[in-house]
């Protein structure tokens, strides 16, 4: 359909994204960045920079199938740099109880067994939820409810895929400490999802 003179430009354009795809991608990137940087303006900057960097080097990119993965890897690196510059000198104790520990602790009886009412429910087939906007809204609310230091470690581990050994070195905490914080974060997120998504869904 295209005339021959358009051949080259349209080929380059094919490898880049349609406007609608960029809008979706931008929304996903912003969500990802906001959860980790905890600041809308900083997150928007990181996303914009990642998109620009991706666009500037789009010629080096072989196929469009993994464009999203590739752009996210650029964003991920930007966020890691940001987090590193922010956390080089942690001043507060990272294991400090923020008062919400009792909430998770209270789920167990004195022997360390689940109270009957607190026993984790059967979520059925939760994977269907991954396609629902409602689920993601709740997921974001639950993540944002985490204490900042806990959330930082959780997102470094689960979103950025860093190993706990690397996280501890970055933050100057012991690996055991890191596991304790992650356990707390996961238990709290689990509880929040169960209460606000499963039981109210």
């Amino acid at each position: 359909m295209n005339s021959e003179r358009d051949g080259n430009t349209s080929k380059a354009a094919e490898l880049w994204l349609q406007e609608a795809e960029i809008a979706t991608l931008r929304r996903d990137m912003l969500r990802f960045a906001k959860l980790q940087l905890r600041d809308v303006a900083t997150a928007e900057d990181a996303v914009q920079e990642a998109l620009s960097a991706a666009y500037a080097t789009r010629g080096r990119f072989a196929g469009r199938a993994q464009v999203k993965t590739w752009i996210f890897s650029i964003l991920r690196n930007k966020i890691i740099d940001q987090i590193r510059s922010q956390t080089r000198h942690p001043t507060r104790s990272l294991t400090q109880d923020d008062g919400r520990n009792a909430e998770v602790g209270a789920l167990f009886d004195d022997g360390g067994y689940w109270h009957k009412a607190a026993r984790p429910a059967d979520w059925g087939d939760p994977e269907a939820a991954l396609g629902s906007e409602q689920f993601w809204v709740i997921f974001e609310i639950c993540l944002n409810a985490m204490a900042e230091n806990t959330a930082r470690i959780f997102t470094m581990r689960e979103f950025l895929g860093l190993e706990t050994a690397e996280i501890c070195t970055e933050l100057g905490i012991s690996e055991n400490n890191c596991w304790v914080i992650l356990h707390r974060a996961r238990s709290r997120l689990r509880l929040c999802l169960e209460e606000n998504w499963i039981k109210r869904g």
């Binding site: 996903d28 999203k68 026993r119 984790p120 429910a121 979520w123 991954l130 689960e158 979103f159």
Partner: peptide, 22 residues
């Protein structure tokens, strides 16, 4: 059964996080 559910949910949470990560 409570801990079995917890175990499955940990796997699901990881999957959800990966999905956010593009």
């Amino acid at each position: 059964s409570g801990c079995t559910n917890y175990d499955r949910q940990m796997g699901f949470i990881r999957k959800a996080c990966r999905r956010i990560g593009g």
